[in-house]
């Protein structure tokens, strides 16, 4: 099922054969500048939820764009499932197509509308099936974008700071929704975020990127639903903030 996206260099087989996503020795630089990604290795197991943290310019977005197939692999190798979906920070819905048409954009079959309605109901947008995207609120638009990602039944879902532009309350609701959806669909997830608490609430593992390399890679072994009051939460929060270079916590 897995397909090699691109290999330009002969590399030894990665240790984890069962992984959904394997990045090996991935290096990327723009022009003559320093490497944005520097011999990066990363494996994500099927159904694993990984949060990717890091400062602006640490290479998070470049890694995600490479995994999404938007940027080419020039050095190293990337193996990922064929069925992937991306949710961006902006919903990127087509304003001239109704919500349900956006959801099943590029999908074929006579049952397109039924499938769209089912997945829109799943994300709590069953009442806006026929709405125009420009009439949606920010939270609703992101729900529609999530629906569009899920309708493809991806084996690997990428979320690029999907809640960064939402207000705090909407963000909380959306985090719960993503958590529920992930438990039901069990696809591998890579969540790019700036928010340490978000990573700790949602992910199985947190990876901190710094200058194109992995600085910290810690499992988050807490039961769900997670609470901020949990002492392990505080402990992990300290570790992640420390590796992000924030020492005031």
């Amino acid at each position: 099922m897995n397909t090699v996206v691109q290999v330009t260099q002969e590399v030894p087989a990665p240790a984890r054969d069962d992984a959904a996503v394997v990045v090996h020795g991935l290096t990327r630089r723009f022009g003559d500048g320093p490497a944005v990604l520097d011999r990066l290795d990363l494996a994500i197991a099927p159904g694993e939820f990984v949060a990717l943290l890091g400062h602006s310019g640490s290479g998070k977005s470049t890694l995600l764009r490479t995994l999404a197939g938007l940027d080419p692999v020039t050095e190293g190798s990337v193996v990922r499932p064929r069925e992937v979906s991306v949710v961006f920070q902006e919903s990127r819905l087509l304003p001239w197509k109704r919500v349900w048409q956006n959801t099943v954009l590029g999908q074929d079959g006579a049952d397109r509308r039924d499938r769209a309605v089912a997945v829109l109901e799943e994300v709590g947008l069953g009442h806006r099936v026929d709405a125009w995207p420009l009439t949606l609120s920010g939270g609703e638009a992101q729900r529609a974008a999530l629906a569009r990602a899920l309708v493809r039944e991806p084996a690997f879902l990428m979320l690029d700071e999907p809640f960064a532009a939402l207000d705090a309350l909407t963000r909380l609701k959306m985090q719960r929704l993503v958590s529920d959806l992930w438990i039901r669909h069990r696809c591998a997830v890579l969540l790019v975020t700036h928010d340490v608490d978000e990573a700790l609430l949602l992910a199985d593992r947190a990876v901190v990127l710094e200058r194109g390399r992995i600085r910290t890679d810690v499992p988050i072994p807490m039961d769900r639903p997670r609470r901020h009051a949990d002492p392990r939460f505080e402990h992990l929060r300290g570790i992640l903030l420390e590796s992000l270079g924030v020492h005031d916590g």
Binding site: A68, G69, L70, V84, S85, V86, F88, E90, R92, L94, W96, K97, L105, G106, R148, R152
Partner: peptide, 27 residues
């Protein structure tokens, strides 16, 4: 360009991108 990028991640063919994204956007 963000919409074109989105179309790429959804695996839309060139013809479909023209029909569903470019032409309605230019209308």
């Amino acid at each position: 360009p963000k919409l074109l990028e989105m179309a790429r991640t959804l695996g839309l063919s060139r013809a479909r991108t023209i029909r569903d994204v470019i032409l309605p956007g230019a209308l």
